[in-house]
Amino acid sequence: MKKTTIITFAVISALFLVSWIAKGMFTEGSSPFLDGFLVTLAAFLTLAIMSFLYKDNPYYKFAEHLFVGVSAAYAMCLGFWSTIVGNLIPRLSSGISEFFKVSYIEGDYNFIYFIPIIFGILLLMRLSPRGGWLSRWPLAFIVGTTAGLNFVRYLRSDFINQVSSTIVPLMIDWQGFGHFFSNLNFSATGQLVMMFSNLVIFIGVTCGIIYFYFSKEHTGWFGRASKIGIWILMITFGASFGYTVMGRISLLVGRITFLFRDWLEIIS
């Protein structure tokens, strides 16, 4: 190990300890030293993750691996206690319910609840070198039901509803030019703006589809429509990227708030 690595580690450890003691001494509550430790640890992990912006380093790797490990363990424990103990056992056995201190659901006994137990055990057979093939049965069940459920629901919500909302009238409440000009206004729900919005939807969707139509060469009017399609896509990606930037800055704001308000208590 390099000398600089040892010195860096020692300095960071010392700073961590100082921060922990200081937080423990000046934090109010029933367990100030525990609270102080947790806030300091959170600050250390935040800075360890942010250090990747400078370059990859062991502190970043430690924080990343810790996050992955804790997340996986937490998910497994939560799944066990909320589903197996919370949902399944109260419907199967009063004895086991008593052991786990959950209330047994009287009269809800059903043999069908043994199927998920069997499938769950079969799924874990993946860990066995000889019985691994048995896990394919529950996996096939999961894939089949998910595909079946998603097919029907997504066809309706993501396809049919979206297509029907694109087929919009270009002339809204049209009662002639006289009526149109006498009621002309730029309100968001006004006739002019609504007609313009629907026209943008019509042109945007048509040109977007043309761009992805490859059975005809993109030349002439077809090529021009395709180019408009590219512009529509670029504007969409731009809007999406704008929101992404806002999202990332929000995360930075969240961390700055934590570091400077909760940890260092510099900003109130």
Binding site: S157, N161, Q162, S164, S165, I201, T236, A239, S240, Y243, T244, V245, M246, G247, R248, S250
Partner: peptide, 13 residues
Amino acid sequence: GVMTAQYYPFLGS
């Protein structure tokens, strides 16, 4: 923010 633009079509429909 990252998700928002993706869900605007559902608002329109």
